[in-house]
């Protein structure tokens, strides 16, 4: 197998799982959203790595080049980036409301408060 083989993919996947780990285990609800962002950006890395063609250039057509990287994943990820920020914004708006309603954004503290009422 030629270097770097599947290395790009593997690291992207490790990054994804690190993001997911933060989402699952961090009790701070803002931090969870940070984890979510990392998870998503890692997926973007994975997609863009798929698009790369060895020796290719950016897919802007020009007579000087014949080999281009694949434009389609780029298109998809442009959309996905926007979806990602939309989700983040919504999550943070929710957190502002949660902070106002519960006085905290700590998952465990909120669970305790919910049990009380």
């Amino acid at each position: 197998m030629e270097f770097p083989g599947l290395y790009n993919y593997w690291i992207a996947m490790v990054l994804m799982m690190m993001g997911l780990y933060i989402v699952i285990t961090d009790p701070n609800m803002v931090k969870k959203i940070v984890g979510l962002s990392i998870f998503q950006v890692s997926v973007f890395v994975f997609y863009i790595s798929m698009a790369k063609v060895r020796g290719g250039t950016a897919p802007i057509l020009d007579d000087r080049f014949t080999v281009y990287s694949n434009p389609l994943p780029h298109v998809l990820i442009l959309t996905a980036i926007v979806v990602g920020i939309a989700t983040t914004a919504l999550a943070l708006a929710l957190l502002v409301r949660i902070q106002a309603a519960f006085g905290t954004v700590d998952e465990e503290a909120i669970k305790a408060l919910e049990r009380e009422t």
Partner: peptide, 26 residues
């Protein structure tokens, strides 16, 4: 990786707007 459009968007949205939104919420 030859994805200049994506790079530009990610830098402005992911590293820029996103952080600003986070800071605003915080």
């Amino acid at each position: 990786l030859d994805a200049v459009d994506v790079a530009f968007t990610e830098a402005s949205v992911g590293a820029g707007i996103s952080v600003v939104v986070f800071l605003g919420a915080m």
